[in-house]
Amino acid sequence: MLVTVTGGTGFVGAHTVSELVRAGHRVRLLVRDPGAVDAAVRPLEVPPGALDVVVGDVTDERSVAGAVRGADAVVHAASVYSFDRRRRAEMLRTNACGTEVVLTAARRAGVGRVVHVSSIAALFGPGVRVIGDRSPVGTTREPYAATKAASEAIARRHREEGAPVVISYPPALLGPHDPKLGDQNRRLRDTARGIMPLWPAGGLQIGDVRDTAALHAALLSPDVTGGHFGPGHHLTTAEYVAAVREATGRSLPAMFLPATLLAPFGRLVDLVQPLWPWHIPAEYGAIATVGAAVRVDPTASTLNLKPRPFTDTVTDTVRWLTETNAIPHRKPPS
């Protein structure tokens, strides 16, 4: 099967490409920068000649049409994931407008299967605490979740009109080999460095990128319909920090405060961030998301894929961050 993948040089996309190649599929990538392909997939042991590369952007109809032409399936993984409000316009353009362009082009080309990579955040809304297969599109105003909700609405509309669209809902994801060091792995790095002493009390749904990539490969089966959740765990922030302590062997002092107390600080950060050249890891969106502690219904479909132990995910990710010098190596005692 020839599978066109958007976002293939990103975290989820690169791991998905690796799974697809491992499953015997031919893969075509739509990328803005062909020079980024090797760095994204080489650590995942994807053979250099296994990929066909088309240069273009998901918001450009002509390049997208060329990328999906002749494909048996499309995995639309291109997305901007960030709680940084400076990237709001970029998120709207890529997450929402790009989804419309890609899914429309896939329908016109007669593609037999489209996997739209959504997010559990696309189902978030005020008062929502549990999400599942029948959850409506989210109504939150947080920029990232709002743009993913907009793309979710687009994907559902195409599906209702008869397009062969299936949807995946990844949780927050960790894992090794993140080409661009995205939001979650950056937060893990900062935690392991000991520069995140304050945490909102609450919880988050979190998983391993390799498990979600395996889900995407499974969604290419013609027998699968509907929406399916990436395997993961619901952890409190205290449990998350405890796992990082275990993986790093560091004490990592941390204080857990009610999200309502930290929310004003997060709003202040959102106001200051556009004026500050460096990223401040205390965005209101992240605080509110953790404070809401949204859970995935345990009966929701993951295609019976089981999440690997969270301690394994953290250990593997910390090892990779250390090997790439994102986390300093611990000096042996003198």
Score class of each variant (00 low, 15 high):
residue 155 A to V: 03
residue 157 R to M: 07
residue 166 V to S: 02
residue 142 E to W: 09
residue 139 T to N: 11
residue 143 P to E: 08
residue 183 D to I: 13
residue 128 V to C: 01
residue 163 A to I: 04
residue 147 T to E: 02
residue 159 R to V: 03
residue 156 R to N: 09
residue 176 P to R: 12
residue 137 V to D: 05
residue 158 H to A: 08
residue 148 K to S: 05
residue 141 R to N: 13
residue 173 L to A: 07
residue 141 R to F: 15
residue 138 G to N: 00
residue 179 P to T: 15
residue 176 P to D: 13
residue 164 P to R: 08
residue 170 P to F: 07
residue 153 A to W: 03
residue 135 S to Q: 01
residue 167 I to D: 00
residue 148 K to V: 02
residue 153 A to R: 02
residue 153 A to C: 10
residue 183 D to N: 14
residue 170 P to Y: 11
residue 155 A to F: 07
residue 146 A to R: 01
residue 178 D to S: 10
residue 175 G to L: 09
residue 133 D to A: 13
residue 168 S to A: 15
residue 186 R to L: 15
residue 187 R to D: 14
residue 133 D to F: 05
residue 154 I to P: 04
residue 153 A to K: 03
residue 147 T to W: 04
residue 183 D to M: 10
residue 151 S to N: 05
residue 138 G to R: 01
residue 149 A to V: 11
residue 170 P to A: 12
residue 136 P to M: 14
residue 157 R to K: 10
residue 158 H to D: 05
residue 185 N to Y: 11
residue 147 T to D: 01
residue 145 A to E: 06
residue 181 L to H: 11
residue 160 E to V: 07
residue 173 L to V: 12
residue 134 R to W: 10
residue 173 L to E: 05
residue 163 A to E: 06
residue 140 T to I: 03
residue 185 N to M: 06
residue 178 D to C: 12
residue 149 A to Q: 07
residue 157 R to G: 02
residue 169 Y to C: 06
residue 162 G to D: 13
residue 168 S to M: 09
residue 171 P to S: 15
residue 177 H to F: 07
residue 163 A to W: 05
residue 145 A to K: 01
residue 179 P to R: 11
residue 172 A to S: 14
residue 180 K to E: 15
residue 129 R to K: 12
residue 150 A to C: 04
residue 179 P to M: 12
residue 184 Q to P: 04
residue 132 G to W: 00
residue 180 K to C: 09
residue 187 R to S: 14
residue 142 E to I: 10
residue 148 K to I: 06
residue 163 A to Y: 03
residue 160 E to D: 15
residue 143 P to R: 01
residue 148 K to N: 09
residue 155 A to D: 05
residue 175 G to P: 08
residue 147 T to M: 03
residue 178 D to A: 11
residue 154 I to V: 14
residue 144 Y to V: 07
residue 137 V to H: 02
residue 153 A to L: 02
residue 158 H to E: 04
residue 150 A to H: 07
residue 167 I to W: 02
residue 134 R to F: 03
residue 172 A to V: 09
residue 137 V to S: 08
residue 178 D to V: 11
residue 148 K to M: 12
residue 161 E to K: 11
residue 167 I to L: 14
residue 141 R to H: 14
residue 184 Q to N: 13
residue 157 R to P: 01
residue 140 T to W: 00
residue 147 T to K: 03
residue 180 K to T: 13
residue 177 H to W: 09
residue 151 S to L: 08
residue 161 E to H: 15
residue 179 P to S: 15
residue 131 I to D: 00
residue 138 G to A: 05
residue 174 L to W: 05
residue 176 P to C: 12
residue 179 P to H: 10
residue 178 D to I: 08
residue 141 R to W: 14
residue 169 Y to N: 08
residue 187 R to M: 15
residue 183 D to C: 08
